[in-house]
C-alpha cells in the first residue's frame, strides 16, 4: 500500500468519525444539557457559599463546604450508610427471587390467562409511587385503621405499631419497595425467560435433569446477561431510595417513632433542610461519588459473574 493510499484511508476514516459525531451531536448536546450540566453545576455550587444569606451575592469559598460536610458523616451517617447497604442487599435479593419465581410461573406451558396476570402484575407500576406509599401507610400499617391490625384484632391479638421500631419499619419499607419495584423486575425476567432457547431445556430433560437442575444449569446462565443491566439499574435506584423511607416513617409531621434512616433521608434531615445550597451540594457530590463507587463495584461483580 502506497503512502498516498494510506493517507486517503486515514482521511476517509477521519471524515467518517466527523460524520458520526455530527449525526450524534443532537443527542450528545441533549445529554450534556440534561445530565452533565446539572452535575457540573452542583459541583460548582458546592464550592460557593450560596445560602439564604448569600443568595445572589455568593462567592467562591473553595473546599470549605466539603470540610463541613465531613461533620455530617458522623456515627449517625455511618449507621445510615450501613442500613442503606443492608437495605440494598435485602431488597435486591428479595426482588430477584420473587421476580424469578413469578416469571417462571408466568411461563408455565399450561397456564391460562397469562396476559391478564401480566397486566395485573404491572398494576403497581401504573400507580404514582407517592399514592402507593401513603396507601400502604394508612391502609395497611396504621395502628387505628390499618388492615393488618384489623386482622390482629380479629385473631384476638393486641394492636401493633408496625412502623414504630427500627426492625418493623425496615421490614415494612422493604415490603412496600418490593410492591413498587417488582413489576420492572418481573417484566425483565419474563422477557428473558421467553428468549431462552427451548431446545436447551429439552436436551437437559432428555439427559435426565430435574426441574431444579434445569433452572440452575440452563435457565439462569442463559438469562444472566439479559438481567445484568436491570440488576445494575435496580441496585442504583434502591441504594438512593428516598421516597419509601421518608414518606413511610420520616415525613415531617407524620413520624412513626422509628430512627431508621438511609443516607439520603439522613442527609435530608441533617443538611438539606438548612437551605444552604453550597453545603447541600457538597454533600450531594460526596453521595454521588459513593453511588458511582457502589455502582462500579456492582458492575464489576456482575461482569465477573458472567
Amino acid at each position: 500500500m502506497t503512502s498516498v493510499q494510506i493517507s486517503a484511508n486515514a482521511y476517509k476514516r477521519g471524515k467518517g468519525t466527523l460524520v458520526s459525531y455530527l449525526v450524534s451531536a443532537p443527542s450528545l448536546i441533549l445529554i450534556a444539557g440534561v445530565v452533565v450540566f446539572p452535575i457540573l453545576y452542583t459541583a460548582y455550587i458546592s464550592l460557593t457559599n450560596m445560602n439564604v444569606y448569600h443568595w445572589f451575592n455568593y462567592s467562591f469559598v473553595g473546599l470549605v463546604n466539603y470540610a463541613r460536610a465531613l461533620f455530617v458523616f458522623n456515627s449517625g451517617f455511618l449507621s445510615a450508610l450501613g442500613v442503606t447497604v443492608l437495605w440494598t442487599i435485602v431488597n435486591m435479593a428479595a426482588q430477584l427471587i420473587v421476580a424469578y419465581v413469578m416469571a417462571v410461573l408466568l411461563n408455565m406451558p399450561k397456564l391460562r390467562l397469562k396476559n391478564l396476570y401480566r397486566t395485573l402484575l404491572m398494576f403497581p407500576w401504573a400507580m404514582p409511587g407517592y399514592v402507593s406509599i401513603l396507601l400502604w401507610k394508612t391502609g395497611m400499617f396504621n395502628s387505628q385503621f390499618g388492615l393488618l391490625n384489623r386482622w390482629m384484632q380479629d385473631l384476638g391479638h393486641a394492636s401493633v405499631r408496625w412502623l414504630a421500631s427500627d426492625l418493623g419499619a425496615f421490614i415494612c419499607c422493604t415490603v412496600v419497595n418490593l410492591w413498587l419495584a417488582l413489576p420492572f423486575m418481573i417484566m425483565i425476567m419474563d422477557g428473558a425467560l421467553q428468549s431462552v432457547d427451548k431446545s436447551f431445556q429439552e436436551s437437559a430433560l432428555i439427559d435426565g435433569a430435574n426441574w431444579l437442575t434445569r433452572q440452575t444449569a440452563v435457565t439462569l446462565p442463559s438469562i444472566r446477561p439479559i438481567i445484568g443491566p436491570a440488576v445494575i439499574i435496580t441496585v442504583f435506584t434502591t441504594f438512593k431510595q428516598f421516597d419509601v423511607v421518608y414518606l413511610l416513617i420520616q415525613q415531617t409531621g407524620a413520624k412513626t417513632g422509628s430512627h431508621l434512616h438511609t443516607i439520603l433521608t439522613y442527609a435530608y434531615e441533617n443538611a438539606f433542610i438548612a437551605s444552604n445550597y453550597g453545603y447541600s451540594s457538597a454533600i450531594s457530590v460526596i453521595i454521588f461519588l459513593m453511588l458511582i463507587a457502589f455502582s462500579m463495584l456492582t458492575r464489576t461483580r456482575t461482569k465477573e459473574g458472567v
Partner: peptide, 11 residues
C-alpha cells in the same frame, strides 16, 4: 393513640 398524624387524628 400512638399514631397522631393529620389523617389519623382527624378521622
Amino acid at each position: 393513640p400512638d399514631e397522631t398524624e393529620y389523617a389519623t387524628v382527624n378521622t
